[in-house]
Each structure stands twice: as structure tokens, then as C-alpha cells.
Design a protein around this nucleic acid. Structure first.
Lengths: 378, 378
DNA sequence: ATATATCATGGAAGGGGTTCCAAAACCTTC
DNA sequence: GAAGGTTTTGGAACCCCTTCCATGATATAT
């Protein structure tokens, strides 16, 4: 039996229909079947019809792996995300998925649980070439890893994180923070506290900058005593507010703030819990603005800054697919930059203010807040 | 140039290192390299060392697609989920992912947005063989589709859905509902309303049964006037409670219920909103128990029934991997049932009661509920 | 030392597609 | 009807591994 004429004599296991079976059935050569499969125009209509007939009759569908091996392309995209419980990741993923469907790409989810995990993926993925490209969400990517993707011709798109070597989609944190502060200023607040995230995160630095810019715009001097730094979670937000409380309410160090801007909604929730536990009413006595627009915020009526998460996911996939295509298009030459690579794109998204009730700028829906109580589950 | 000696003369594109390069570099044959790769013991230690050395030197990693084609196995699992915004899917997925990592499997996420989508996947996946098996979450699967997976030797595991032809992991809805009702009974409630889901969902039927059983156990006759059926969402829950209100409070048709069991937490939230909008306090005047334990419930202090979502995902992957292995193990014979297939497993999970504050059985954390208000964002 | 069993090794033959070149078939045109 | 151009078609070579058989090398028994 010559090579190129696969055996059909397996055991009881159903051996799948191959291109050879189709060729025989339709009385044509391999090339022709392949051409039909790939919509190559160089096939006579009658022939094409015969081939398609054979494929339907035998219930044929090309084997993804064989195809992938031959054309060196899997039509699968890797998505690397931190363990995706947070709404942010879920939303971004949703956008990615949605777009992927339109491009006929499948996505493999590489989710990172532990610290080391991330680098294992970054090393394995470009080598094993199971995917044609990858989208990284939030995780910081080292230059060497970006390089190893690019060198193998695998495009990389970063969402909510950056690296000069790859395309990235980011949110303008400064602008978001400034918007939040401006909103509070517009409501007449002059003493605005800030429960920020830890400054070792870039996002926190940017949000601080935005906070300062917002104040400066209104001619209000920056007062470090109004700012605390905490982890991005509820408990920490609560504790952070606790610090501000001690300083400004208990010890009367200067006038207490009349508004708090929290760098995330979960922190905002902690802040509100703390305030209310001290009998300080939100928004009547202190207004609160959060950041993220997590689902909970809608339910709790928290005014916040919304990041276009879904949209970012969608665009990321779009960009990735474009890269894949431009790579296939230009074989040897290209209109790219001197180093032989097309220039990198950096798309900045502008977050938007979502006004609800925690800042007191407008009353709740039907005049009165509906009074489901949020209990502390400590 | 003979076949089997791939050309290394591509353009500028980095051509990846192959097994041939390693063989040459280490001065051994292909077979030996492959054996080293697959931990085949029939390799002299020195030889093995040389091969490994060559692999490291050249930065070799086997190409996933080629490997997949050769061994007819991709080490990739398909996960088919309804568009996974709901916490239930996210949690199950998390469990699946977590387990997958341990088995060195990747997962491709097939998420179903539209109605038709589902069947497209069920037809395409077994034909293209990009994955070795699949886990289906919640979606109903037709017999013919189960069949087409099995026929191709691709195991199928169903989570939160059933089909006699495949393994399935389900939750005991009856038990869950009965538990909720028993809890309310134990607190002294005798008139318990039930805001159920639509009866066309199997889950709703089971929960209704559980509700009835619970009452019967306490010798309380079933009163259909206390039961309404609504869609599984917040608005519907609210409307459903509205109906009960009209009937029992407004028109005084019999004593009003002192407790409500809702078939999902989102419905429970709607119920609470409605009650409070009428000035009826929860839990003081009416106790409420939900179902699902979504994240929100923790924040709102809703007593609910928790399904072991993460655990189900984990077990599903475990089961799938076992199936894959037992399939590889027994080539011709097997200790399977007469039709040549191993019997199908059906694993039932028991949901558990999570007691919080919406049923009044215990006070909130520090004695007083913290009064963040939940505003209605209508 | 010889016969025999055991282990290590090389490499052809797949796995199921795509690509590309050369040959065949079909049109035009003079 | 021959020459020249265009399409259509067949199939070898290749994508990169695994599998398995045959061969050579080594160890064990006689």
C-alpha cells in the first residue's frame, strides 16, 4: 500500500471520513477536493457539485488538526486571563468571545491561578503553536515574552496592560478619576477624600494623578491627609475609610470630607458600610463615587465610572484578527517600519460616569429609595 | 530531497525547530527523539541525556498540532456553556479550569449566544475533532447529538442537564427546595408562599415537588393560591410577589403568608423589593429564602440554597478525563455493558442551606443591619 | 564459544489536510 | 487543423509528530 493512500481497516472504532474517501467517491483527485473545501475558484461548477455531493453523502467535515498542521494555522486564539472571577474579566471575555464567533475563531482559555503560572503559559504557548495568537488581559507581560511571540509570527494583543512591543487597549484611568472628582465638585463638594488602591499598581498611580488634576482644575489645593491607599477589596476599603474617619471626624484634624472617591466599587462598598456603621448617611451627609461599575453597583445605586469592558474585548479580537491577516497577506515585503514590523497600536478607551444615587445628585427612582438592607456578613 | 526530510529553507520567517533538527543535533534517529519526548523507557540514559541536551540547546517544544494529528488526540476539551454571564456558569467553569490544569488539558470555550448556535456546535465539534471530549453545561442535548459524540469516541459529560446516553452531574433540586421550606417551617412559619420559576423548566418542577414535600412533612396542606410561577429574573420575581400581595394582602383571600420561598436569588431580590415598597419589613414581617447563592446574596444577607458549582465543574472534568483514559486503555475487549459501552454515570449533588438574615433566624453581624440601601434602578 | 533472550535504535509508514507544479482538457484565433 | 493561451485537474511533497517493525547491540544462559 503506497503512502498517500491511508488504510481504512481499523478495528470497530469508527474511522472518520477523509479527503481520500471524498476523492474516490466523487471520482476526482485530492487537489480538487481540497480546492472545493477552500473555495478555490479553479473548479468547474459540475465538479464542485459532485464533490459537495460526496461530502454530504459521507458526512464529511475536515479534521481540524490535520488542516491546522498543513496550513500552519489553527484558527484558535489563546486568551490569558487572571483567574476570571471578577466581572471585569468576564465582561472582557464576553466581548472577545462574541467577536471570535464572527471571525470563526475558537478560543482557548488559559487562566492564571498562581503567580508562576503566567510565565509557564507565556513560554509554552508560542512554542507549541496550538493557537495563532493571543490576547492577554491585565497581566503584565515581560519584553522577552512579547518577543518570543512576535518572533514566531504570533500576534499578541494586550488588554488593560501594556508593552511597547505589542498592541494594547487601555483605559484612561486619569481621565476616569478626574471625571469622578469633577462630578463631585460640580455638586458643590470641596473636601473630597480618596480611598485609592495600592500605589504599586499603575492604575492607582494614574487615578491619583486624575484626582489631583481634578482638584487643581477647581483651584483646590491637594491635601494628602485626605488620601489613603488600600488593597482593591471591600474590607480594605472599609478599613481605609476607618483611617479617614479617625483623622477627620474623631480627632478633628481639619474639616471632615463631604465626599469620598473610591478607586473601585468594592472599596466604595466598604466605605459606605463604614460610614453607615457610624451613623453617617450616604449620600445625605457624605457622597460616595466608586469605579468599575460592577453589577452590584447597579443594585446598590452606587455612582461610578464605567469602563467599556465588553467593547475592549471585542476590539482586542478585531485587532488580533487584523494582525493575523496582514501577516498572511504580505509574505516578503511590507509597508512596515524599518525593523520589519508594523508599528504597534495603542488604543485608549475613555471611561464614562454613571450617575446613580450614592452621590446624591439625583433622587432614587420613585422618589424613595427602596430599603432592602445590606447586611455585613462578617 | 526525500520525503521525511523537511526542507529548512523558508524565507526570513523563523521556522520552528522540529524533531529532525533534534535528531541530527543529537546524532540519533527520529524514533529515539520521539521516545524521549514520550518518556518511553527504552532509551539508554546517556542517549536520553544527549537528546534532552539538544532539545534545550535548540529551544525545542513539540508542535501541538502535529502531535495531535499523529496520536489522534489534542489534549483539549470543549466546554459548551450558555453565554456565561451568570455566576453559576462562571463558577462551574472555574472548577473545570482548575481541574483541567491538573490533567494538563486545555479548554476551548464554546459559548452559546443564540438559540441555533447550540446545535451548530454539537454538529461541528464531533466532526472536526479539535477536542477530545466535551462538557456541556445546562444546555439540553438531543439524543442524536449525544450519539454522534459517542460514535466518534468522544466522551461527553453533562453538568446541570441530563441525557441517558452520557454521564451527568446534577443537583437535587427537590432536596434543595425541601430544605428551604423545612428551614422556614422550623422557624415557625406555616403559611409559606412560593415564587417559583416557569414550570416548563425541569428545575422548577422539581423545586415545586420539593416545596410540596416539605409542607407535607409538616402536615400542612398544599395551597396553590400561595404559589406563583415567573421567569427567573428580578423583575419577574417582583411581579410575582405583586400577585401574591394582591391576593392575600389586598383582597384578604385567606391569611397572608409570613414567609416566601423564591426559586432563585434574583427572584428573591425582586420579592424583597416589592415587599419593602409596600412597607412590609424583611425579615421582621415576612421572611424570605432564595436559591442559588449568587454573590449578591452574600452582600444583601439573603438566606439561600447553595449549589456546589465549583465542585461540579471539577468533578465533571475528572469524569471526562477518566473516560478518555479508559477508552485508551481497553482497545478491543472491555468489561462494559452488552452494547459495548460502559454504563453511564449520574452523580447527584446535594445543595446546602446558607443561613443569613433575610429569614430572621439570626440577627445580622453586629446586632444591627448596616443600612446601605438598595435602590431600584428602574 | 554459541544459542537465545532482551534492550536500544533507526526509519518507513502513517495521521489528514494544503500547495504547487506539471499534465490534460478546453478555447480561441489564424 | 495547428499553434498558443487558459482553465481545470491529479498527485507528489510537505506540515511534524507517533507507531511499529526490523536490525543491531548487549546481556544471559548453556
Amino acid at each position: 500500500m503506497k503512502a498517500g493512500t491511508p488504510a481504512r481497516l481499523k478495528g470497530l472504532v469508527v474511522t472518520s471520513v477523509t479527503i481520500y474517501d471524498i476523492a474516490k467517491q466523487a471520482g476526482v483527485g485530492l487537489g480538487t477536493v481540497s480546492r472545493v473545501l477552500n473555495n478555490n475558484p479553479h473548479v468547474r461548477p459540475e465538479t464542485r457539485a459532485r464533490v459537495i455531493g460526496a461530502m454530504e453523502e459521507l458526512g464529511y467535515h475536515p479534521a481540524a488538526m490535520a488542516r491546522g498542521l498543513a496550513r500552519q494555522r489553527s484558527d484558535t486564539i489563546g486568551v490569558i486571563v487572571p483567574f476570571f472571577t471578577r466581572p471585569f474579566f468576564v465582561e472582557v471575555l464576553k466581548g472577545i468571545q462574541d467577536a471570535a464567533l464572527g471571525y470563526n475563531k475558537d478560543i482557548i482559555l488559559y487562566s492564571v491561578l498562581q503567580r508562576g503560572q503566567k510565565n509557564v503559559y507565556f513560554e509554552r504557548i508560542p512554542r507549541e503553536r496550538k493557537v495563532d495568537g493571543a490576547i492577554v488581559v491585565t497581566l503584565r507581560v515581560h519584553d522577552e515574552h512579547v518577543e518570543s511571540f512576535i518572533r514566531r509570527g504570533m500576534p499578541l494583543v494586550l488588554v488593560d496592560t501594556e508593552n511597547a512591543g505589542a498592541d494594547s487597549l487601555v483605559v484612561d484611568n486619569m481621565h476616569g478619576a478626574e471625571t469622578a472628582v469633577r462630578h463631585l465638585l460640580s455638586l458643590g463638594h470641596r473636601r473630597i477624600g480618596f480611598v485609592n488602591g495600592l500605589l504599586r499598581y499603575r492604575a492607582s498611580q494614574e487615578r491619583l494623578k486624575g484626582y489631583q488634576d481634578g482638584l487643581r482644575g477647581a483651584g483646590i489645593p491637594y491635601d494628602p491627609a485626605l488620601v489613603v491607599e488600600t488593597e482593591y477589596d471591600r474590607e480594605s476599603g472599609r478599613a481605609g475609610m476607618g483611617k479617614l474617619w479617625e483623622q477627620h471626624w474623631e480627632r478633628h484634624t481639619g474639616r471632615p470630607p463631604t465626599a469620598i472617591f473610591a478607586a473601585s466599587d468594592v472599596q466604595a462598598i466598604g466605605v459606605i458600610e463604614f460610614l453607615q456603621s457610624k451613623g453617617i448617611r450616604v449620600p445625605q451627609a457624605v457622597a460616595v463615587v466608586g469605579y468599575d461599575d460592577i453589577e452590584l453597583s447597579k443594585y446598590l445605586g452606587i455612582t461610578t465610572i464605567r469602563q467599556p469592558m465588553y467593547e475592549m474585548g471585542r476590539r482586542a479580537m478585531e485587532l488580533l484578527v487584523n494582525r493575523l491577516e496582514e501577516r498572511r497577506g504580505s509574505r516578503p515585503s511590507s509597508q512596515s517600519s524599518p525593523d520589519g514590523r508594523p508599528p504597534t497600536e495603542r488604543i485608549v478607551f475613555t471611561p464614562e460616569l454613571v450617575v446613580r444615587y450614592s452621590c446624591g445628585s439625583r433622587p432614587a427612582a420613585n422618589g424613595d429609595p427602596i430599603s432592602i438592607r445590606l447586611f455585613s456578613d462578617v
